[in-house]
Design a protein around this nucleic acid. Structure first.
Length: 542
RNA sequence: GCCCCCAUAGUUCAAAGGAUAGAACGGCGGAUUCCUAAUCCGCAAAUGGAGGUUCGAUUCCUCCUGGGGGCACCA
């Protein structure tokens, strides 16, 4: 917030001279100042003057501004600012009165955020967990800064995989009736397949034993899908992820969208038949081979239905779509872009976010995961073991582009090793401070005593609170949630330091105590807001 | 072979083209008659290699090396 105000100030001085170029205002090392800018360094070539002379122009303009207590030129031409304590106190007062409306986000538009999309052929795994948490948190942040966000999960309920599952369930069902059948080579072997088979057995007895046709397949498909979706719901509830909608791949076939898309492409002469299949002229748009849309057996590829899905997203009136995929999908992206071009959908309509994989570790041992072999750690198992808060925190805490090493032992540790507790503890400590104050007969009054705040750490904490909006802007820009966990750790750390340094509740000086509690309230609100965006609880007691 | 991501301290991760590359864990050494020690303070410890762009590169470009993933009429 304060950073942004300085940036705006500098920009207005630039425009007075008719200049408009990129520069940054950032928080430097403490010794240099509260804020720092390279506006003079970058400006040298526009002003046609040495950086230090350019800096003088800004300093003349800024001198006497109430926001600052000191402005200096340093090094090759940085301008360093010290913000006045009055300004910090004023910010704190404004913040604790209206922590939501103080930020000036200028983001609008309807965004469809797709993530967690999974084959409904088995339980959600740890890999899905990362994607779901990334998506959930990004969705929360995008919403916070002003976007109208729809969180959507795409259900791949139409392809070959779901058929394989249906067949696998049928085989297990037969085995329950002592009839030996072979699970298909690529079939599903997990325990849950037997559970689904039991459901069919309960409802239908033995009427499908040894009977396999399209009608039976459809029945088994419905059972499998229904049961898996129930499992998904339980898992999503556990991880605390709320979707606004699910979107069925099959519905795109049933409602004619797929045919519509094929029609458009055919009219534009962008598809052709070969070897009994229908192909899209991908090579006309990008340097890649053409791709099959309709297989020779008449069924549709995932590529085609996904094109239809994105066509539908566009038609549903969204301004932008954000797709979050695992990194194994990266090959899909250029093809999708080509397909969107083929449909005259603006290239920048979709933003793709790829996240790297998760390696699960128990101590030094790597835990293997594979859905089809039936050997996996499910998301449920993970949450049962480490808890929702730790699971979410760990999934969110590294850059989406970085491979995540998820250490089960660390996530479980109820000790200071664990960053989740570190942040939560800061929140709980503040709550207990308020209790303590009441105990000692100090009745908390909002805003009272803020004018007495003067400690360096108090100013530093307020400064950090004021950069909450910068953190969110960055998350939106880079589409990675880890900036938020970083920020919360910084804030918690600074608070713990302050707590160790300053006796906050001091019955001898109730006025100052009250001022400090106001500052603590600011920290508490900021931590709570951050944790809320992460979907993690902010406990008052630990 | 082609494509994507990654390479930073012993380990797991940060870093808005900027000033002395930050944390955490681990290691070593300290702190509480006082608000929650799930805390705090101090010390040691790192940009894989070679070029290039720039006043300035962990960051951008090229090549090399090493890891992960992908190159289906699977999703």
């Amino acid at each position: 917030m304060i950073r942004k105000e300085i940036e705006n100030l500098l920009r207005s001085y630039l425009s007075e001279l008719g200049f408009d170029y990129d520069f940054v205002v950032e928080i430097p090392e403490e010794q240099f100042g509260d804020f720092s800018t390279n506006v003079a360094l970058v400006g040298a070539k526009y002003f046609k003057k040495p950086p230090r002379d350019v800096a003088k122009y800004f300093i003349d303009k800024l001198t006497g501004h109430p926001m600052f207590k000191e402005i200096t030129i340093a090094g090759p031409g940085f301008i360093n600012f010290r913000v006045s304590n009055e300004f910090y106190r004023d910010f704190l007062a404004r913040y604790i009165q209206s922590p939501h409306s103080i930020w000036t986000f200028k983001r609008t538009g309807k965004i469809l955020l797709e993530y967690g999309s999974a084959n409904p052929t088995g339980p959600l795994t740890v890999g899905h967990g990362r994607q779901i948490v990334i998506g959930d948190v990004l969705g929360n942040v995008l919403r916070y800064v002003g976007y109208d966000v729809t969180k959507e999960m795409y259900i791949n309920d139409a392809g070959r995989q779901i058929k394989l599952l249906a067949r696998s369930v049928w085989v297990r069902y037969n085995q329950l009736h002592s009839r030996e059948e072979e699970i298909p080579e690529d079939g599903y072997r997990g325990e849950y397949v037997i559970d689904i088979a039991r459901k069919v057995q309960v409802d239908h007895g033995d009427r499908f034993v040894g009977v396999w046709n399209e009608e039976v397949e459809e029945i088994f498909r419905e059972y499998a899908l229904g049961e898996i979706m129930k499992m998904f719901e339980v898992s999503l509830e556990k991880i605390g992820a709320k979707f606004d909608s699910t979107y069925s791949e099959k519905s795109l076939i049933d409602d004619g969208t797929v045919q519509e898309v094929l029609g458009i492409l055919r009219n534009k002469d962008l598809i052709y038949e070969s070897e009994g299949a229908v192909w899209l002229k991908v090579s006309k748009f990008i340097k890649e081979n053409d791709k099959v849309l309709v297989k020779s057996d008449g069924s549709y590829t995932y590529f085609l239905t996904d094109i239809a899905y994105h066509y539908k997203k566009f038609r549903r009136g969204f301004d932008n779509a954000i797709d979050i995929f695992g990194s194994d999908h990266h090959g899909h992206i250029p093809r999708m872009v080509a397909a969107l071009m083929a449909l005259d959908i603006p290239e920048d309509f979709v933003t793709f976010v790829l996240h790297q994989f998760v390696t699960l570790k128990r101590g030094n041992e790597i835990v293997k995961m594979s859905t089809r072999a039936g050997e996996f750690v499910t998301l449920d198992e993970l949450i049962d073991e480490v808890g929702k808060d730790a699971a979410r925190y760990f999934f969110a805490m590294v850059d989406v582009n970085t491979h995540l090493n998820f250490d089960l032992e660390l996530a479980k540790a109820q000790t200071n090793d664990n960053p989740v507790y570190y942040v939560q503890y800061a929140h709980a400590r503040i709550s207990s401070l308020f209790e303590k104050a009441t105990e000692k007969g100090i009745e908390f009054k909002l805003l009272d005593g803020i004018e007495l705040l003067n400690h360096d750490l108090e100013m530093a904490l307020i400064k950090l609170i004021s950069s909450f909006d910068d953190v969110l802007e960055r998350i939106v820009e880079k589409l990675s949630p880890h900036y938020l966990t970083d920020y919360l750790e910084d804030l918690a750390s600074l608070f713990h330091r302050y707590y160790a340094d300053v006796k906050i509740v001091d019955p001898e000086d109730p006025k100052l105590t009250n001022g400090r509690l106001n500052m603590c309230l600011g920290v508490k609100i900021a931590i709570a807001e951050g944790l809320k965006l992460l979907g993690i609880s902010a406990p008052d007691k630990m």
